[in-house]
């Protein structure tokens, strides 16, 4: 899977949050997107997931489908999924149902009368064991701790079996054990050939985990390349800590 972003632009009341941005996200790689606050990282994820309408530019999927308007409910069919900086779960539902709802058939009649098949239940168990929440499966999502909620959101994304994963600060606020689970999930997705996008402020994680890095500043691409080289770049250091 490959996503090619060409001249992507987003404006908010005269402020250009993403400015003529072009970059490529490739399968089988963990791509880091870094930059100071307000550099346009989350806006980019919001544009790619249809949360914000694109003002200009094109997103090309697999060298084949050129998209100028992304509708949120279509991103599943494009093979894209995401997580959020501020965790967003289905709070009324149990931990198990937060996974099962992703596996739902969208045919109305099936949806009205069909319960989940054994394959769905097996998949949900697999995901919940991977994120160490199997024992909490019947508890409401709202009762989980911050870290568990973060893991459940990541588990929900993984159960979508997407080809492009947009993770917005998935390590923020996690204990080391939980961060280890997230790290192994990201590596597993990379090994499966998925394009994994990681927005992260922790530069040690970026150095240790990513294969390629894009640095944004004020909505424009400041630098790109292998993490060890890019993070030593004078422009990048200045953008982070100022002149």
């Amino acid at each position: 899977m490959k996503i090619e972003i060409r001249n992507l632009t987003k404006r908010f009341d005269g402020v250009t949050a993403v400015n003529n941005l072009s970059l490529t996200l490739e399968g089988g790689k963990i791509t880091g997107i870094v930059g100071p606050n307000g550099s346009g990282k989350t806006t980019l994820v919001n544009l790619l997931s249809g949360f914000l309408p694109i003002d200009g530019g094109t997103v090309i999927l697999d060298d084949a489908i050129a998209v100028k308007k992304i509708r949120p409910h279509k991103i599943k069919s494009y093979g894209i999924t995401r997580t959020f900086q501020d965790i967003r779960l289905f709070e009324q539902m149990s931990v198990m149902d937060n996974i099962l709802v992703v596996l739902t058939e969208r045919n109305l009649w099936c949806a009205l009368f069909e319960c989940h098949n054994p394959g769905h239940l097996q998949k949900a168990e697999e995901v919940l064991r991977m994120i160490d929440l199997w024992d909490k499966r019947d508890e409401p999502a709202s009762s989980l701790s911050y870290g568990q909620r973060k893991l459940l959101e990541i588990g929900r994304a993984v159960s979508m079996e997407a080809r492009v994963y947009l993770f917005d600060e998935p390590f923020a606020g996690l204990f080391p054990g939980m961060a280890g689970i997230v790290e192994s999930i990201l590596k597993q997705l990379r090994n499966q050939g998925c394009a994994v996008v990681l927005i992260e402020h922790d530069m040690d994680l970026i150095r240790g985990l990513t294969d390629y890095v894009f640095v944004l500043d004020s909505g424009v691409l400041l630098a790109e390349g292998r993490p060890h080289e890019v993070l030593r770049d004078r422009k990048v250091v200045e953008a982070y800590i100022g002149n």
Partner: peptide, 10 residues
């Protein structure tokens, strides 16, 4: 619960 997230899960 969250119609925006509901959309992105399809």
């Amino acid at each position: 619960d969250d119609d925006e997230v509901a959309r992105i899960i399809g």
